[in-house]
Design a protein around this nucleic acid. Structure first.
Length: 246
DNA sequence: AAGTATTTCAACCGCAAACCA
DNA sequence: TTGGTTTGCGGTTGAAATACT
């Protein structure tokens, strides 16, 4: 006898989403946005709970999702960020544009964690494991810098300051991280200081992400046709990013 | 070819934070 | 300030895919 359902589960469908359900959700969000996840399935005519709709959109249907295998750079970034942030998957995902927290969590548990354990048992002979067990500031910086170059390739809408004057680009953020973050990490004395410093740092990122969210919502309102066109066409996201208006 | 074990990853769950009247 | 509601997060599950015997 399990616990009572968290929300109205009577008649609510579960399990894998069908292409038809996906299309209904995409169409609805295209038309009305997703200001209220709880009410969305009812209005859209989906027999799903709001949580399920949100998860499906965030992790799979969003136009800016990057599919496919993780690159070694991305994997190394996850390993390094995990060392600093722990299991704060959403914070790690924020540094990897196009990747979701769920995806990163899965990759960590299925590949990276096992690899680290295996390498540890082998005496940490690889470069990667040396970095993980005793990561130097230089190592971390190089990863951040490498990641930045990747992000610039994949998210020009973020790095384009002409389009979003108030928004720090990933390059800017990474530069800030590059200059002060790791210095602070290695110089502060106790755990509380480190946590406080990470909170401050994330607060700065949050402020920028709010601006980004605003611009994003503006995108949804003003350019939803473009997003929908992307979704209903055969063009890939990469191709979409290559268009001059972005 | 068939059966079994292992791996992968989409989706679910419960909790805590954020929001709002 | 408070209490109800909604959202977001991290842990976990389980079906499908893949590898192994």
């Amino acid at each position: 006898m399990g616990r009572a359902p968290c929300c109205e589960k009577m008649g609510v469908k579960r399990g894998p989403w069908t292409p038809e359900e996906d299309q209904i959700l995409i169409n609805y969000i295209h038309l009305y946005g997703h200001s209220n996840w709880r009410a969305l399935p009812k209005h859209a005519g989906l027999l799903r709970c709001g949580k399920s709709c949100r998860l499906r959109w965030i992790n799979y249907l969003r136009p800016d999702i990057k599919r496919g295998n993780f690159t070694s750079q991305e994997e190394q970034t996850i390993i390094n960020l995990h060392e600093v942030l722990g299991n704060r998957w959403s914070a790690i995902a924020a540094k990897l544009p196009g990747r979701t927290d769920n995806e990163i969590k899965n990759v960590w548990h299925t590949h990276l964690k096992k690899r680290l354990i295996k390498n540890k048992n082998n005496g940490g002979v690889t470069k990667e494991i040396n970095r993980t067990n005793e990561t130097t500031r230089e190592d971390k910086e190089s990863v951040i810098i490498e990641t930045t170059s990747t992000q610039q390739l994949t998210t020009p809408e973020i790095s384009n300051n002409n389009k979003a004057d108030d928004l720090m680009s990933y390059k800017d953020i990474s530069a800030l991280v590059d200059e002060s973050f790791w210095t602070d990490v290695v110089s502060v004395g106790n755990k509380n200081d480190i946590e406080k410093m990470i909170e401050d740092w994330e607060g700065m990122l949050d402020r920028n992400s709010k601006i980004y969210s605003y611009n994003n919502s503006k995108l949804y309102n003003d350019d939803m046709e473009s997003w929908f066109e992307l979704f209903t066409s055969n063009r890939g996201v990469e191709e979409f990013y290559d268009t001059p208006e972005f």
